[in-house]
Design a protein around this nucleic acid. Structure first.
Length: 432
RNA sequence: GCCCCGGUGGUGUAGUGGCCUAUCAUAUGGGACUGUCACUCCCAUGACCUGGGUUCAAAUCCCAGCCGGGGCGCCA
């Protein structure tokens, strides 16, 4: 097909330059013997001005009769002396029709009628053509890229742990069961146990960006049954160390997006406010007292309800940590405090009322870990592969997991997690 | 999983027993137009989620199912 240009280039290239633009026919405005065709590609739009006199009657009819969203390549010359509000246009020498779109479209890409999220997800390939949707995913891409960069700079090794497992992982959540030849197997809810095993393996600092699966029948705007988990685990570190790392990762990521997605932020009409470091550390007990003082009845040992988080989120609108959680609210692998084992060295990173990360220093003491497992009603026999890693030299370690979609929601101000997921998997949806 | 709400042309909606042969916008098909940029104008096409019930009469009321939305629980 040879070299082609992006539509965005025509605004920078000199007048009368030859270009080849390929993309989708967004719109055709026909006015008798002149027509304006708006061509869209990944980088923007360009006006193709077609005149019957110069291109010929037959070709004019063919081009202006194209269905919207057909794919074409236009070979032509840039005209900067245009009356177009875009500032430049292309006068075509030749238009090649590569794919004719059927009609009517299942949803309009630029139509002035709103489309339900449900309909959009049903025809996601079409929905994703909308520039503001593309911008969301460009931002999500750069969030992932910036996190990777930061972690690589900090000496983390990228790993890939299995997504098919034999036994229940951490308990607490339902798992998807599947057939694995003659055995039953499950999809992982998180790489937690494996990344901990990697600490015993001596990798010291690892990270993984991969899907996690939860068979919970939740039906909300912030839960998916398959989501992308950004996990890290770090040896010879406590919860403070990984909280420091986490806030620096988030800080770096926000800055990276603010500096590298300027057009996307403009498209979405967003401004990213860079928070100050360090993020506030708020103790569970203090927040418990606070919500009780605000008329919410909550007992020690309970998790914060949505109602409670809404109250807290009104007071703390940006990023903050909730620290020093009661052990009963946390998973078995959390390390209790020496001075007061009622509490665990666990934290959540919050943004207003929204939870985006949870983490902790892990319990690396074999006997104590096993004991906590039993307390949580788990059978240590089922976790042999995991527990054995603690018996032959396991360093103290800590880690966390960010929900990639949750972080993207915050940066893009999205109201529904499905907006920031290409092909979401929820209680009802397994296709497309 | 629980509570509440909803399902009308391709898309988004109005209509809550008869005025519905169903509103409006957008889209689609045809036509007019040489500088549009939310182009404009004319004509046309196109819909009451499924099944059962109540009634002289159902898009509208009742029941069941399917699908969806909001909230909760749970979490990333």
């Amino acid at each position: 097909m040879g070299r082609k240009n992006y539509t965005s280039e025509i605004y920078n290239l000199p007048d009368a330059s030859d270009v080849i633009l390929c993309g989708w026919v967004q719109e055709i405005r026909k006015l008798g013997n002149i027509a304006f065709l708006i061509l869209r590609d990944r980088e923007g739009v360009a006006q193709i001005t077609v005149m019957k006199n110069s291109i010929g009657n037959e070709k004019f009819r063919e081009i202006t009769g194209l269905n919207r969203e057909s794919v074409i390549c236009v070979k032509g010359k840039i005209n900067k002396n245009t009356q177009s509000k875009l500032g430049a246009e292309v006068i075509p020498d030749n238009v090649e029709i590569l794919s004719v779109a059927e009609t009517p479209l299942p949803m309009g890409v630029i139509d002035r009628v709103s489309v339900d999220l449900e309909t959009r997800l049903d025809v996601r390939f079409m929905d994703l053509r909308r520039p503001e949707i593309l911008s969301v995913f460009k931002i999500e891409s750069n969030i992932g890229k910036s996190i990777r960069r930061k972690l690589e700079d900090e000496g983390f090794i990228e790993i890939h742990t299995p997504k098919i497992i034999a036994t229940a992982t951490e308990g607490g959540t339902e798992l998807f069961r599947l057939k694995y030849f003659e055995k039953d197997a499950y999809l992982v809810q998180s790489p937690q146990l494996y990344k901990q095993i990697m600490m015993s393996a001596g990798f010291e600092r690892v990270y993984e960006i991969a899907p996690a699966f939860r068979a919970e029948e939740h039906n909300t705007s912030r839960h998916l049954n398959e989501f992308v988990s950004v996990d890290i685990e770090m040896s010879f570190a406590d919860e403070e160390d990984v909280m420091n790392l986490l806030e620096n990762v988030v800080f770096y990521s926000l800055k990276y997006v603010k500096e590298n997605n300027i057009n996307d932020l403009k498209t979405l009409n967003l401004d990213i406010e860079i928070p100050e470091l360090p993020f506030p550390r708020l103790k569970y007990d203090d927040l418990l007292n606070y919500v009780n003082s605000q008329g919410i009845n909550m007992k020690f040992g309970e998790d914060f309800s949505s109602e409670a988080l809404n109250v807290i989120g009104k007071k703390y609108t940006g990023f903050y940590f909730i620290t020093r959680w009661p052990m009963e609210t946390r998973a078995f692998y959390v390390m209790p405090y020496d001075d007061d084992p009622k509490y665990g060295k666990a934290f959540d990173l919050m943004f207003g009322e929204r939870e985006i990360t949870s983490g902790a220093q892990r319990n690396h003491i074999y006997s104590s870990l096993k004991e906590n497992m039993v307390k949580k009603g788990l059978n240590p026999e089922n976790f042999r592969f995991y527990l054995d890693a603690f018996r032959y030299g396991m360093p103290p370690h800590a880690g966390w997991a960010i929900g990639l979609e949750r972080l993207t929601m915050i940066l893009t101000d999205s109201k529904n997690i499905r907006e920031v997921t290409l092909f979401p998997r929820d209680r009802k949806r397994i296709e497309p």
